[in-house]
């Protein structure tokens, strides 16, 4: 099965130690966390984790279920990062190209 970059998004209660609990789910399966963010979500008192990892669809499904199983986790989702990444890549690329064009024209 193909390895892809996935984004996991989890909504949780604001409890001490949850970062370790969730990170350990990845560690136990030898999954490298590529990026990680924890921040207050749009819902009051609820935190949101976004975690990027490279793995298979099967494995990400298991990881999601394990995350949701934790008592203080409300809901977890996953997305294939490709689309987001390409979108971001295109935007950043366009931005840089525009800046370069500006620089060239200024010269």
């Amino acid at each position: 099965m193909e390895n892809k970059l996935y984004v996991v998004s989890a909504y949780t209660e604001n409890q001490v130690g949850l970062l370790g609990v969730i990170a350990n789910i990845f560690t136990r399966r030898n999954l490298n966390i590529e990026t990680l963010q924890v921040f207050p979500s749009e819902f009051e008192g609820i935190h949101r984790f976004t975690i990027k990892t490279r793995t298979t669809q099967d494995q990400i499904n298991r990881v999601l279920m394990q995350i949701e199983k934790k008592v203080d986790v409300i809901k977890a989702f996953s997305y294939v990062d490709d689309e987001v990444l390409m979108l971001e890549h295109a935007q950043v690329g366009a931005f840089l190209a525009a800046r370069e064009a500006e620089y060239e024209s200024d010269k």
Partner: peptide, 8 residues
């Protein structure tokens, strides 16, 4: 009862 067991 444990959703994480299904298909594990």
């Amino acid at each position: 009862i444990d959703a994480s067991e299904i298909g594990k």
